[in-house]
């Protein structure tokens, strides 16, 4: 068990290291920090002196080591555009993205579990067929189209809901802003969160359905029927509980996937989160901000995956703790 934990953590560290090397080489090749600082008018000698002073003439590894040291201390450089530490800019935008992800997660949990379980229990029911049909249509519609469609119908044509921005926010504990606690904020959140959920929801419904159908075929469920247990108990306690394990695993990874889709949703709704900021940073060639985003998002991915893997390893007795993929 300890060996598994250590291996998993070492792997996470290696992945983070690779991400940092990649991010750093991007930083090294994108734009000239000196020009951002002093402009064009400075002579070549002064430039070179500044370069040496700033350590830009040092070998790659020395520079990387310095970058890594600063990164560990939380210093990921200063954004050219905002003139503030890049990490601070990202932390300003993070709550908006988290709001969005939480909103979408809410829709996914509320709809996917009952619909998926129902479709597994009654595969021939018209509602199950309908929801399966909807799910394949849902998979086929790119997230930005869902978003555009929702804006067109509810914001442009009907004028019920706002089409962009985050609305009123409240500040919690002095650091964390959220729009989940104001009516206006929730109204703004409605369309973006539904669009974001629309990518993952069909996948979840299909996954819960197929997992639960498989569980319903197993021996212990048949035995539970044979014992004459009430239906609700067989479905909920025997079948559904055992469906949850794989679902939670994949679900954990999906949270990481959602971060990628927030870039699209936030762009359409001009939601002031990390994804929207990232695209703007790309357009402005704001290298420190791009690099900081890569590292923060990489960290989110690595942490979610590591936690999910470890939890899965702890909970599922069937996982061979060394080399998880051998079970296939």
């Amino acid at each position: 068990m300890i060996a598994f934990l250590v291996r998993r953590l070492v792997q996470a560290a290696v992945v983070m290291l690779v991400i940092s090397v990649l991010s750093f080489s991007i930083q090294n090749h994108l734009g000239d920090p000196l020009r951002e600082l002093v402009g064009q008018s400075v002579s070549e000698e002064i430039r070179d002196a500044l370069r040496t002073e700033m350590g830009l003439n040092d070998p790659f590894l020395v520079q990387y080591w310095r970058f890594l040291g600063n990164a560990v201390k939380g210093d990921l450089g200063t954004s050219y555009f905002f003139k503030r530490p890049a990490l601070e800019v990202i932390m300003d935008k993070l709550p908006a993205t988290i709001d969005l992800v939480m909103g979408a997660t809410f829709w996914i949990l509320v709809f996917s579990i009952p619909v998926g379980a129902f479709a597994a229990i009654n595969p021939k029911h018209w509602f199950s067929r309908l929801s399966m049909g909807f799910s394949i249509v849902g998979i086929s519609i790119p997230v930005f189209l869902t978003a555009i469609f929702l804006i067109y119908v509810f914001a442009v044509e009907l004028g019920w809901l706002p089409s962009y921005g985050r609305g009123d926010t409240v500040t919690l504990f002095g650091v964390w802003t959220t729009s989940l606690l104001t009516g206006d904020g929730l109204r703004h959140l409605l369309l973006p969160s539904i669009s974001l959920a629309s990518v993952i929801l069909p996948l979840f419904v299909r996954m819960i359905r197929s997992e639960m159908m498989e569980v319903l075929e197993t021996e212990y469920v048949k035995f539970a029927w044979a014992k004459g247990l009430p239906r609700q108990r067989v479905w909920m306690v025997h079948a559904f509980k055992n469906t949850l394990l794989p679902v939670v695993t994949v679900g954990g990874v999906q949270i990481g996937i959602m971060v990628a889709y927030t870039i699209l949703t936030e762009t359409v709704f001009q939601w002031p989160g990390m994804g929207f900021m990232f695209l703007e940073a790309i357009n402005r060639v704001d290298t420190p901000l791009i690099v900081a985003y890569l590292i923060v998002v990489g960290l989110i991915f690595v942490i979610t995956n590591t936690v999910v893997d470890i939890v899965y390893g702890l909970v599922n007795p069937m996982v061979k703790l060394v080399g998880k993929h051998d079970e296939q």
Binding site: V15, V253, I282, L294, F301
Partner: peptide, 23 residues
């Protein structure tokens, strides 16, 4: 393969193309 899958294609593609376009 596991690691690459966990980062999702869209994310990887956005990053590579963004960097490529700016370079």
């Amino acid at each position: 393969a596991d690691i690459q899958l966990s980062f999702t294609t869209l994310m990887v593609a956005i990053i590579i193309l963004a960097v490529f376009q700016t370079t």
